[in-house]
């Protein structure tokens, strides 16, 4: 019996919105990696003294580095938002024998994000 097997083409991920979002979320890992590299460069520059740090700042201020960082931030935000949206699926939390509703789990995630960001901001800006 000959069956027909539909070929998987290169742009399969454009078929559905959810696939596009998924591929973008996967792609965001590249930008997460970029942030790590950027951080390492920063730490390296700081450890090498004031001049080195200033050189790093100048380099970071160039338009294309800023552009990369903006894009990277957008990707990381996308990652966060889509990931938080999926979080209730992975977590079946029970409080006093009742399952916590999905929205509350999502809300808790955003709340934790906010609190952590605020703590970091406080550490940096005080």
């Amino acid at each position: 019996m000959s069956v027909y097997q539909r070929p998987v083409h290169l742009l399969w991920w454009l078929e559905r919105r959810a696939y596009v979002l998924f591929v973008l979320r996967e792609l965001s890992s590249v930008f997460v990696a970029w942030f790590v590299v950027f951080l390492l460069l920063l730490v390296n520059a700081v450890s090498d003294g004031t001049a080195s740090y200033q050189r790093f700042l100048d380099w970071s201020g160039q338009w294309w580095v800023v552009a990369i960082n903006v894009v990277a931030m957008l990707f990381v935000l996308l990652h966060v938002v889509t990931w938080f949206g999926l979080a209730p699926r992975a977590m079946a939390i029970k409080v006093r024998g009742r399952r916590v509703p999905a929205q509350q789990i999502v809300a808790a995630h955003y709340l934790a994000w906010l609190v952590l960001s605020a703590a970091v901001a406080w550490l940096v800006l005080r």
Binding site: R16, Y19, L86
Partner: peptide
Amino acid sequence: CTFVGECSA
């Protein structure tokens, strides 16, 4: 599974 989530959708 890479958690696309479409199965549930």
